[in-house]
Computed example of a mutant assay.
Amino acid sequence: MTLRHEIVGNATQLVVVTLRPGQTVYCEAGTFRFKTTNVTMETRLSAPSGGGAAPGRPKGAAAAGIGGLPRPALGTAVQTGRRAPADESPAFQYLTAQDGEGTAGFAGVLPGELRALELDGTRAWCAQRNAVVAAESTVGFALLDLRGGRTGTAGGEGVALGRLTGRGTVIIAGAGTFVDLNPAGLGGRVEVGAGSLVAFEESVGYGVRRAGGPDRPSLMHAVSGGEGVALATLEGDGSVLLQSTTVQGLATALNRTQGGDRQGPASGFSPTPAG
């Protein structure tokens, strides 16, 4: 049964869910906002396993990687449901309604939109860990070990990817505004800034590469601090959700607003402290 919910707000949205007696949702502590007193909260250190078997690989997808990209280690991690190392496992809050219906509210960690994904058990989704706001306990969530080891969970620009499986409702968040696309309608393959990627169906192939690195000196290379840009390649037929604002971009803007970029060429001056 679909989770009863209402998404409210405009530029910054919040979701209010109505829980049936005994129904449970989970979230990370940073997304919880409020609950009625008849909703209990329990903290668990293990990732949600969901209430059903993980769906198989989408029909027609190659076994070499997600959706067919030739990345053997990545494909193995997804096929086996392998989790990230124990010290990267997040703590989740489980909220359960007792003695009648209960209400709880959740929001994303950054200002932006919310979207409800309805999983039917036939196809998994991959999403940024920080994009998952709340989900029914029947939905499994596991951080992906993409290449093995601690750094393997990063999907670019420090983005940790998780796999959502099972049946039920998942509420995800995007900073700024959501952008929907399907690589199949854009020539079959598209490259996006890795920090802009929120979620994608597992039928879509995925890989990350860095462009404009130290081996290619340029003005953009100097501006980016010599690190280049992490590009995510998305290939195949399936839904992809992007966000119009990135964590890195927002952090840079806040740093400049607070005077962190006073020495940069764009500022042109250094304010004299008052007094």
Rank of each mutant, 00 (worst) to 15 (best):
R216Y: 14
G226T: 00
G149N: 12
R216H: 12
T12D: 15
N255C: 04
G108L: 02
L119R: 05
L144V: 15
P21V: 05
Q98P: 00
R210V: 15
G249S: 08
Q13S: 01
S49E: 11
G193D: 13
P214A: 15
A91L: 05
R147K: 13
V17I: 13
P271M: 08
V247G: 11
G108Y: 02
Q128M: 08
L250Q: 14
N38H: 02
G22C: 10
R33P: 00
A73Q: 14
M41Q: 14
T24M: 05
G176S: 11
G75I: 02
R262P: 01
G112N: 04
G228C: 07
G260D: 12
S244M: 11
L219C: 01
G140W: 08
G238N: 12
D120T: 09
F92D: 09
I66A: 12
R123T: 12
P111R: 06
Q258V: 01
Y206K: 08
A116S: 09
E191W: 00
L254F: 08
T76Y: 06
T153C: 13
D261W: 05
T165G: 02
A47R: 06
L250V: 10
G174T: 10
T37E: 07
A53L: 01
D261M: 07
R189G: 01
T12I: 14
H221W: 14
F92T: 11
S244T: 15
G100D: 08
V159M: 02
V78Y: 06
T169Q: 01
G148I: 09
G155E: 03
E42S: 06
L144R: 12
T272L: 13
P214G: 15
V204L: 04
G225K: 10
A63D: 14
A274S: 15
R216G: 07
G152M: 10
Q248G: 10
R129P: 05
T80M: 06
Q23Y: 00
D215E: 15
S46N: 11
E28S: 13
G236N: 03
T43M: 15
R83W: 11
F92I: 13
R83Y: 02
A54Y: 05
A116Y: 06
G162E: 09
E191G: 04
I171A: 03
R83A: 13
A97F: 03
A84G: 01
A211Y: 03
L254C: 12
T257C: 10
T103L: 13
Y206S: 09
T257W: 04
A266R: 14
G226R: 10
G275K: 14
T103Q: 12
L114F: 03
W125N: 06
A47G: 00
N10H: 03
L219M: 15
F178A: 03
R57S: 01
A116P: 03
V198F: 04
G60V: 01
G9F: 08
L114M: 06
V15W: 01
L95I: 14
V170E: 00
E101D: 11
G140Y: 04
